[in-house]
Nucleic acid binder design. Structure first.
Lengths: 219, 219, 219, 219
DNA sequence: AATGAATGAGCCTTCATTCAT
DNA sequence: GATGAATGAAGGCTCATTCAT
């Protein structure tokens, strides 16, 4: 809009910027409060106080407590999505070992410092089905992409897995990576992250390169 | 106990027996209520009703809601402990593949039908540090026993892991088994339990038999 | 249940009696509070206090504020129904003049001392459709009965009104009686109730005995 | 006003004019909002929005919510006053039958389309005593004027009512007209307005022409 | 020991009103 | 004068816990 006097234009821009900033302040405060107290004991008043706002203001930005949680979860999921996208941006590495490392590193990057929040968001709180669906979609996309890759470029020569097998293997890769990272961050069996990382990659690659199944099993 | 003179039987026993039975009834009721409603919405009144008691009576058996939760969790942990003990009673299998299968089966047995309760108990509720400590001790014992076994009978010839390495590997075995079982029960990527079981065992054995690490790693 | 020991039987009876008494205490308190403050400002805490109970107890008897209002309204409607039924019990008087007097007296009896409450209940508060329906049914029944009577025993010789006319006339009788009684109790244009009563009856009988309509009208 | 030198035109007028226009816009908005949502749920923010103003601006025109209500009520009363005045402007009709028709028509005109607002203003909201007084004064004036007319020109030959009687009769005329109109608009026992009008006029005229009272009454 | 009515702190949320820009 | 973000008192309601019977 050239020609419009500068003084007349902004009008809403600074407000919206500030507004967005306040929203984020509330979300950050909520994250901290939920992490410390859990969902049930993370009261809206506490969140408002933590955010340095009155309770009334908080409710001008979010219609209710669950909306805060939902937004927080969405933000979290988005960060995950972005992390995955970014990891893939520069092209997938050529070997499965490198790919396993990438998986581990991405998981570590996503969850570092956020494991407790993740837990509150996705396990302890009332998650609306819409969010659940969104999460599942994200995970499914990842699993599906990995399964496709497993089929196109089988890590074990000769024994390309069938469709269902590839998907299950992909699910195991994703689930193991994420669950173990979570658990590591909660448990800290070693204070040494790189030791954990190395071991996780070892697990993933061993699993990927496992010799073909001979069919014998039983309790 | 026929033949025992009435007057000699301990006065308190029947009461205590009934008392213990009532406690258990309350705990069972609490388990059902927590599973259905979660911790926060699992009110003491609901528990009392489910147990077929008045709320007043419930409070004669437990000083407060958290005590119920604590007891429930302890019972759950005990069941885990017993399951592990029982698994070992008849002697450990001779091969690591069989041991991996035992691990997987025990995890499935412990959590089947109880995953939601487990979740409520250990993720959604305010867990007192004492309980956390207890859980950790149990897990540590398991991890330590496995580590010991790894050292005494290394699955990979020639390359016996050092002490710390053995413990980390043991932690991975336990954590992967439990986490993946959990996740499977929540996600159900396959409706077929035995497919999951087979794959989990494959993962564990592949990890156990992995070729010695060559030291090269990095992002 | 003859033979049942007296001491074992009552058990619940006294409780229920007390329970019902408490309900009534709450309703009475609510009536007073609503009359004094109106619906919006008649807070549940105020009602509880007026009833000499804690807020928690109040909510053990009613699930929410509207339920209190609804119950109060129903009680009021029931009283009206009973008043009407009772008025008719001893048989309807034989002349329309006496019937008009009965109508007026019943209205006065129903509303005396309750006009403000009536207003709060039926005009100022959120009335659930169910209640509205109930009220309307009661009024319709009354109107319909009167219309039937007007047809069977026309107050004006020769000019029996048609069906629709009878119903409209009946509606006017009922509405005028009730509305004017209400208004009188709110306005008190005369402190003398019997003067009002006389005039109301005069209005009703004049209306009943009005000469047949000649069809000419217009603004 | 062409020709008036700019410098001479009163500075304040345009502002005051605009100010008055804004006030009216707010009142109109309030009327709509109150009609749709009732008093309690008719929030000031909603009113401001409906008026196309910011909440801050609204508070520059009215000190608080009740002031809006008061002003609205006053405007409503004024309209009533004006309607009555206008009805009388062209001279009172010569017969009581025509006067009854005028009464009915005026009531219908005043309330048509406004019954809900009337209700909110005068029954559902906290009316300050000052307003109540004003309303009562207006009604009293009307009643008094009618009473005077009844005395000066008694509808029933020979039996001119005494002072108190005339006032009571006048009150009945006004109250019946208004109450029944209200009730009709809320109840709609006939969808046909003209049928209602005819019947109302019949009631009023029958009442006016009632044969003199013979003094006998009783319960 | 059992019962369940009673308690009240505290939660989420609304909305009239103020005030910095 | 206008704006709308900020405020916080207050309301409806829940639920762990107590206590008279």
């Amino acid at each position: 809009m050239p020609g419009t006097p500068k003084a007349l234009r902004p009008r809403k821009t600074p407000r919206q910027k500030r507004s967005a900033a306040t929203r984020d302040r509330i979300l950050d405060a909520a994250a901290r409060v939920f992490v410390e107290h859990g969902y049930a004991a993370g009261t809206t008043n506490r969140i408002a106080e933590e955010a340095g706002l009155s309770i009334g203001s908080l409710y001008q930005y979010f219609p209710n407590k669950d909306a805060i949680l939902l937004q927080l979860a969405r933000r979290h999921v988005d960060q995950g999505r972005r992390a995955v996208a970014e990891a893939l941006r520069s092209g997938l590495p050529g070997t499965w070992d490198e790919r396993a490392a990438l998986l581990a590193d991405t998981a570590l990057r996503i969850h570092d410092g956020d494991a407790r929040l993740h837990r509150v968001l996705f396990e302890e709180s009332p998650r609306p089905p819409a969010l659940l669906e969104e999460i599942r979609r994200l995970q499914d996309a990842l699993v599906e992409a990995l399964a496709e890759l497993l089929r196109a470029d089988p890590p074990v020569r000769g024994a390309g897995p069938d469709a269902a097998g590839a998907r299950l293997t992909a699910w195991f890769l994703v689930a193991a990576t994420e669950s173990l990272t979570h658990r590591y961050l909660a448990d800290r069996p070693t204070p040494d992250v790189s030791a954990f990382r190395r071991e996780l990659i070892a697990l993933l690659t061993a699993y990927l390169h496992r010799p073909p199944h001979d069919g014998a099993d039983g309790p």
